[in-house]
Design a protein around this nucleic acid. Structure first.
Lengths: 196, 196
DNA sequence: ACCTAAACGGAACCGGACTCACCTTATGGA
DNA sequence: TCCATAAGGTGAGTCCGGTTCCGTTTAGGT
């Protein structure tokens, strides 16, 4: 129950191996669509006992978050690149769709994005903050350029996207989600100082 | 486990009393904000045993749905009235905000609205269908009048709203939700045949 | 080799929803 | 009025997850 600090002391070799096995097993399960895989199964398919799982991760949620941390990293790096290559408005549009599409990579990812975006769970505080910052960056760039309204904050928009990702469940959800996101985007432009 | 058909045979007097007590206790709890009140507590505060609760309601979810059925009825009646008193576009705007505000009446309502709107649970099939129909009505009226885009369906919009209601959790969520809803509305008008 | 802190294992626990076999009582017909 | 009987009520018990705890094992430094 005391997740070792990142660099407190290098993990023992076997511990390192197990930790990785757990992450890999969990990733496997989530990407396979088993959004709510049981901790026991994850542990078993990692060739480890539950106790070991809990030595490495405070809770089931914490394990999940760790699995997706790299995904979140990738996502949060996107805005910078997008702004380099596109005008702010377009960068924002692309990022919104990128998020939604990302949520589609296996049902697993979307449920985590949702958890990150739509809940208050302290486990996701870090991820949430980073993603809200990423959005703020885009919104500010857009409103500075006058093509995006300036009264919407990163965190607010993040919540909305979280809600949209919460739509996953039905057959055609991705199409629906994209459509709604486009709608939201139109709404963001609509109130812009100098736009339609 | 076999919810009596509405009018198969009039419930025995005591059964009727208990059923009502359960609904009332549940309503009480949900409106008080205890979104995930335990079935035992609900049963206890209704003065009956768990078994009795389960005689009347298939599952916890079913009880919840029943509690909110009347709410949903009210909500679904609104579009008709709104269309009588306002142009389609304005009726739509008002209805969207009405939904969000309704979700704010106690955290309980919002979680149920969310469950109705954002999941596939068969328990809410009925409510979901009715609400999607209500939205379709407004959307059609709006697109017929040329003030609302015509490529968004009731069910899709319902999902989006469900997502937004899923935002409840944080302090300022209502303000955020209203803002996002307004954004969505702007988006709906944006692609309209003859609009901005 | 030996020692010890680190890591592991897994039975036990706990907190929920839900079930079931048995008991209680409303009710309608004699 | 009273009884038969089926509708209704009961609550201990089951099931199913996540989580904890402590005795055992082992990596890895001396």
């Amino acid at each position: 129950m005391e997740v070792p600090l990142p660099a407190s002391r290098p993990l023992r070799a076997d511990a390192q191996r197990n930790r990785e096995a757990l992450l890999s097993a969990a990733r496997q399960a989530f990407l396979a669509g088993d959004t709510d895989a049981h901790v026991k199964d994850i542990a078993r398919s990692a060739g480890v006992a539950i106790g070991t799982l809990y030595r490495h991760f405070e809770t089931r949620e914490a394990l999940i978050e760790e699995v997706y941390r790299t995904e979140v990293d990738v996502l949060c790096a996107a805005p910078g690149e997008l702004l380099d290559q596109h005008p702010p408005e377009e960068a924002l549009r692309r990022f919104l769709l990128l998020l939604v599409d990302h949520a589609a990579v296996g049902k697993g990812m979307s449920s985590v994005l949702e958890a990150i975006m739509a809940t208050d769970s302290p486990v996701f505080d870090d991820a949430r903050t980073r993603m809200a910052d990423a959005l703020s960056l885009l919104l500010h760039a857009g409103s500075a350029a006058g093509t995006v309204r300036d009264d919407v904050t990163g965190p607010t928009l993040l919540r909305a996207l979280g809600g949209i990702c919460g739509m996953r469940a039905t057959e055609g959800w991705l199409a629906e989600a994209r459509q709604i996101t486009a709608l939201l985007f139109d709404g963001l432009r609509h109130g812009a100082p100098q736009a339609a």
